[in-house]
Design a protein around this nucleic acid. Structure first.
Length: 922
RNA sequence: AGGACCAUAGCUCAGUUGGUUAGAGCGCUACCUUGACAUGGUAGAGGUCGCCAGUUCGAAUCUGGCUGGUCCUACCA
């Protein structure tokens, strides 16, 4: 069997995944204790972005880890129907074909969406597989599945019956492009440049006028009052008078309300209760009329004077301003920055609009949901996110759940001709329970429910609720929810409320809140910015031209596309080489610290690709050197190095487990990387060579080293497996075979336990000593420019008894690792020939150079050491001379400092002596 | 307006309850194809831990203020 010199991920990943899936390894199996993660359902018609990739990587690590610890492990997978997004997508396709959903009609349109789902829905699950996600595909769910739809309907009806869902006509956030209401959370307000128009409104008794300031002139046609602050000296005498509203024939009152800020604008506010949330509230307080002047397109309707009917809101603004100007009523226009609310999907300005909608009484549901976090039934990690949660929950607003869409769960409510509402699972039931004869016409509500309404039921609806299933009993509450902080309100909070209400228990015990992935410059990744990276492209690689094409596809503005193209060519001049899933995953883990932003650094990913290669080659070395391992059959004898690495891996095991348990994947990956590269490869593999290549080594010694090589590698693979599933499985198969283990997959092997009995402090300090020696000698070599191939002789002065025995025991290692021909312990009075000298601990190492020493270079080198030591001695002297330190600091700290001082002074005098000796040379 | 978070090497980031010579990866410099690996090896250079005060024998770490940045919530007509 030959193994390639470099690791090629593409060859193995898909093969292993298919094997795992086909073998049913992802399904829950046995174990007293259950461990369950519900996937945050991605949009069924979408595709994975880096944020998803990161999130799946975290979940898969947790799942694989807990599966290996022997738990009954379920990763519940599925997707949601993403009402608005999906409907928009399909509508765009229809548009491209010159048709529309209205041409098709409701049923045909919904059929089209299902077709589209069938076509594109596999995309996201395919990507999940490429990432190695060990989800139980046999239980895949979709929010529009019959079972989940049942749950949605049951919940709606129950909440309605309990009075927690109600229908009401109120101002909603209306999206005039998508023709639907959206919730507060789906509105994003950002500062934009606008104007503040000042208009003169005449009093109807002709006694004068006042000036109002507004950012939305077009709404003046719906004004039903002007408000001033009741204490405002300038205007209080006007309260109670009335105004002849320009451009209309209406008369409206001047009212006093302390909501008005006298400092802003003119101190007079026009009030339009039907088109502004604050005005609505004021209208309620003062019993004002609500005049709705817009239709669903935000076009002026019948309620306004004829001249303005049929105008779009922005056209109306222009006309109104110019008409008022012509009438001499425009006082001035100021530049003004204001927050403009836009729909997060459509991007158009949201219109507060008066329509009947369905609401969830969130305040009542919030109480227990707050308590569950307060009393620790649910724990956020990191804890600080609980504050975000509390802040929102304690000031929660009722949730508008109806959407004027076709794609989604249709609201189970029917109206008779008088507009009376009946809620029930279907028309027949509604008729039966309400005693409605066939003579009465019933019409079902046209609207569907917010997608988040069904997502809020995710943890229990996916497990079979409202049926009382075994799965519910076993896997609910879930163990942990892994999610980004951006959907704490959208999803996490709502899940907690709904689940507590319907299941009487929390949906999950912990919420692990991770950061959001950004590009290398800290920018949010978004399609419109053109800086998205498809995780699959990092895995498989992509040519520059393809990447540019992908990023600029569908960009409306050529200017923007050019900009994106330029940035892409700059950041990825060579395109992206394929790094493989394991490298991508390991990069995600290394970035998963407690911060809020995760800047994705491709350079770092390259480093972890190299790490995969390092591991690959370490395995190659081990396999090459253990070929006759099984046959040998001698009782193993363990070397110092064997005992050392066996001890070290106990600590690594502890550290890795603790890191994963506390969701510190960055620490876990760091510990593993450091161990594999800097301990196992750099030292242990090197230390194994002198043994394996020693012709005098006994069969027992060979056996001890070969066994340790395999044992440690096998354990490393298990520790790495949750993070890097593919490469570890590939290597593990060979390693396990070599060890004579006849088991199926590393996936189902036990998670390593650290064994205190194998911790060996003597071996650890022995190898530390050895490393110090080797490093000291290598440094001499490097600093004096002696090539690595030139063998050296070493004289060791001032060795104590322990050093002497270690020198004797480690001769083989020292000769090989530092490339020495001889090591000689000399007595202090022996004269040293002209040498390069250095210190190692309290020993002095001399490398005789046959008189060809560059005295000047050597003096420079030693002087540098001397200066460092002098600084240290000085620092320690000052510290220890301070009586406050000596008296007040703990005794162990003081004595540690004193020991440092003694060692430093000793070293100082030795270097001084070495310098002196140098002076005697030519 | 209220609140949160962040500021450590050129870059991306660790740094547990205050006590190390402040660490890692990438990048950089010099040398090296030695029988796992040049996606490699060896040895280095590089930081007044944003600024100012305070607490303390001792502060990257705790407290207050300031500056700079990010974000969330509410919203000004």
């Amino acid at each position: 069997m030959t193994i390639d010199k470099t690791f090629s991920p593409a060859d193995i990943e898909t093969r292993w995944y298919q094997h795992w899936e086909a073998s049913g390894y992802f399904a829950p199996a046995g174990g007293e204790q259950a461990f369950c993660i519900p996937i945050p359902p991605p949009n069924v018609t979408g595709s994975l972005h880096m944020g998803h990739g990161f999130q799946q990587a975290i979940m898969d690590a947790l799942i694989r880890y807990h599966r290996m610890t022997g738990k009954n492990t379920l990763w519940q997978v599925g997707t949601d129907h993403a009402g608005i997004a999906t409907q928009m997508l399909v509508e765009r396709q229809l548009e491209a074909r010159g048709t529309s959903r209205h041409d098709l009609g409701r049923e045909a349109f919904i059929e089209k969406v299902w077709e589209w789902k069938a076509e594109s829905g596999g995309n996201i699950t395919r990507q999940l597989r490429r990432l190695g996600a060990s989800t139980d595909w046999s239980r895949e769910r979709f929010t529009m599945d019959p079972g989940l739809s049942d749950a949605v309907q049951t919940v709606f009806i129950k909440l309605y019956e309990e009075g927690l869902i109600y229908r009401g006509e109120r101002l909603v956030n209306w999206d005039p492009k998508l023709h639907t209401a959206i919730s507060d959370l789906e509105v994003v307000s950002e500062e934009e440049q606008g104007s503040l128009w000042h208009f003169r409104y005449p009093l109807s008794d002709g006694s004068g006028d006042l000036v109002v300031a507004t950012t939305r002139p077009e709404t003046m046609l719906g004004d039903t009052a002007v408000a001033v602050h009741p204490d405002d000296e300038r205007y209080r005498h006007l309260i109670g008078k009335s105004i002849a509203l320009p451009l209309t024939d209406r008369t409206i009152p001047v009212i006093g309300d302390d909501y008005v800020d006298p400092e802003f604008g003119t101190g007079c506010v026009k009030i339009t209760p039907a088109h502004d949330f604050n005005d609505y509230a004021m209208g309620t307080r003062h019993n004002l009329d609500r005049i709705n002047i817009f239709d669903a397109d935000a076009v002026l309707n019948e309620a306004v004077p004829e001249a303005y009917r049929g105008l779009d809101r922005f056209a109306a603004r222009e006309k109104i301003v110019s008409d008022l100007d012509r009438a001499g009523l425009l006082v001035k226009v100021d530049e003004h920055r204001l927050k403009v609310p836009r729909g997060d999907r459509s991007g158009v300005v949201i219109e507060p609009w008066l329509t009947p909608q369905w609401y969830v009484d969130a305040k009542k549901l919030a109480g227990p949901a707050i308590a569950a976090v307060e009393n620790g039934d649910i724990e956020f990690v990191p804890k600080q996110w609980e504050n975000t949660y509390f802040a929102w929950m304690r000031d929660i607003q009722d949730w508008c759940i109806s959407r004027q869409l076709w794609w989604g769960h249709r609201i189970p409510a029917w109206y008779d001709e008088e507009g009376r509402v009946y809620v029930g699972p279907d028309e027949a039931t509604v008729r039966a329970t309400n005693g409605l004869t066939a003579a009465i016409t019933l019409t079902q509500d046209e609207d569907v429910l917010d997608t988040w309404f069904s997502s809020a039921l995710w943890t229990f609806s996916t497990l079979g609720w409202p049926e009382n299933t075994d799965d519910l009993a076993t896997f609910h509450p879930a163990s942990v929810l892994v999610t980004g902080f951006d959907i704490i309100f959208f999803w996490v909070a709502r899940m907690i409320m709904m689940t507590l209400h319907f299941c009487g228990e929390v949906p999950f015990r912990q919420v692990y809140v991770h950061g959001l992935v950004r590009d290398g410059e800290g920018q949010k990744m978004s399609k419109s910015k053109g800086n998205v990276i498809d995780p699959i492209d990092l895995i498989d690689g992509i040519a520059l031209e393809d990447l540019v094409a992908k990023r600029t596809a569908g960009m409306m503005q050529p200017k923007m596309a050019a900009k994106v193209e330029k940035a892409t060519r700059k950041h990825f001049p060579e395109g992206i080489p394929g790094y493989g899933t394991d490298a991508l995953r390991f990069t995600f883990y290394s970035l998963a610290s407690t911060g809020r932003d995760i800047k994705f650094d491709i350079g770092r990913m390259e480093g972890y690709r190299n790490f995969c290669n390092k591991l690959w080659n370490a395995a190659r070395y081990v396999l090459m050197n253990t070929e006759d391992y099984i046959q040998a059959g001698h009782a193993p004898e363990y070397s110092l190095a064997d005992r050392w690495i066996r001890s070290r891996i106990q600590r690594l095991t502890e550290e890795t487990s603790a890191a994963i348990e506390s969701y510190r994947f960055d620490l876990a990956s760091q510990a593993l990387y450091d161990f594999v590269w800097n301990e196992y490869c750099d030292w242990y593999l090197e230390l194994s060579k002198p043994v394996l290549w020693d012709e005098d080594a006994s069969p027992s010694q060979l056996q001890g080293t070969r066994e340790t090589l395999l044992l440690i590698l096998e354990q490393i693979l298990r520790l790495l497996h949750p993070l890097m599933p593919f490469i570890t499985e590939e290597i593990w198969q060979s390693v396990a075979a070599r060890m004579g283990l006849s088991r199926e997959t590393i996936m189902l092997e036990a998670w390593p336990k650290s064994e205190t009995a194998l911790e060996d402090n003597a071996a650890e300090s022995g190898v530390e000593w050895l490393k110090d020696m080797v490093t000291a000698l290598r440094t001499i070599r490097a600093e004096a420019n002696i090539g690595p191939s030139k063998p050296l002789a070493v004289l060791v002065d001032n060795a104590n008894a322990e050093d002497k025995s270690r020198l004797a025991e480690n001769g083989l290692y020292l000769r090989k690792l530092a490339k020495l021909v001889s090591i000689e312990v000399v007595s202090p009075d022996k004269s040293i020939p002209p040498s390069l000298s250095t210190l190692c601990r309290q020993m002095e190492l001399h490398v005789p150079m046959d008189g060809v020493i560059d005295v000047e270079a050597e003096r420079t080198r030693l002087s540098k050491d001397l200066a460092k030591l002098k600084a240290e001695v000085g620092r320690l002297e000052v510290k220890l001379a301070n009586p406050n330190f000596a008296d007040r600091a703990p005794a162990d700290v003081v004595s540690a400092e004193r020991n440092k001082q003694i060692a430093a002074e000793d070293a100082l005098s030795k270097v001084e002596a070495q310098l002196e000796r140098l002076e005697g040379l030519p």
